[in-house]
Amino acid sequence: MQKTDPQLKPTKLLDFHAEAVGCLIDDRGWRNLLEFDRIGAVYDFVRNEIAFGYNRADDIPASDVLSDGYGQCNTKGTLLMALLRGVGIRCRLHGFTIHKGLQRGVVPELVYPLAPQEILHSWVEIEYQGAWINLEGFILDDAFLTVLQKSFSDTDSLCGYGAGTDCLGAPPVAWNGEDTYIQKTGIVQDFGVYDTPDAFYLSHEQSFGWLRGALYRHIIRHWMNARVRGFRSGRLKTDRRATHAHAEPANAT
């Protein structure tokens, strides 16, 4: 019996055989596209049709992220990987932590001191034309990113509101066959690559603690999502303090 390629197979989290995920792939006709366009179509769907937002946990299946309709680096990454594997693109996860300053502004100031100093982070790597390409620029949807660009138009350096970049005016977030990034400058630790998010979350989990974890799941994340919607719609104004807390980037390749 031929063994399934470990970077193409479904898993508990990469459940591209789930009805909703499979129907999405079929309805969009992604499998019929050339490889470059196939990657781009899936990537653009996750980047812009799945809004930036905060799910109940990092280790939820792709089908749950799709059902939520929003996600952050880790959960949108799980959905991206599931869709990519569902259309025959080999991919893996690269795990990190980022400095909590990258979430300043989205996390309300009242509870910001409760946030862990380092937050679990990941991006997706795909095999394309014989090389591994880093995909991280899918995290912020264009509508939210545009608000940040207008709010911080006098600087290219931002660490806050879900962005960690030194080229805010023109960040490399669009799929063009090369690496994409939007949070890279906030990276603290590099955990290396994993074939699946399932394996990554077995080795690493966010260290909230029981009380902070419960507060996050039931109260804080809903507050954060309301703030994200407020920024995206123009109801809330950004805070300049978010530009100050930078971390040294890891030498990730």
Rank of each mutant, 00 (worst) to 15 (best):
V21H: 10
D27T: 09
D27G: 07
R28A: 15
R31F: 00
F36N: 10
I39L: 05
A41R: 13
D44G: 03
D44K: 11
F45A: 00
F45Q: 03
N48L: 06
N48I: 00
I50P: 04
Y54A: 09
R56T: 11
D59F: 03
P61Q: 03
A62G: 13
G69M: 11
G71R: 08
N74V: 01
K76G: 06
T78K: 06
M81F: 04
L84W: 06
G86I: 01
L93H: 06
G95C: 06
G95L: 02
Q103L: 15
A115T: 13
A115E: 14
Q117N: 15
Y128F: 15
G130H: 04
L140V: 01
F144N: 05
K150M: 07
T155I: 01
D156E: 12
Y161V: 04
C167G: 05
L168Y: 10
A174F: 11
E178K: 12
E178I: 00
D179H: 13
T180D: 10
V193S: 15
P197G: 08
S207C: 04
W210H: 11
L211D: 01
I220H: 08
N225M: 02
V228N: 08
R229P: 00
R229W: 08
G230C: 05
R232C: 05
K237L: 14
T238A: 15
A242C: 07
T243E: 15
H244D: 15
A245C: 11
A247T: 02
N251R: 14
A252Y: 14
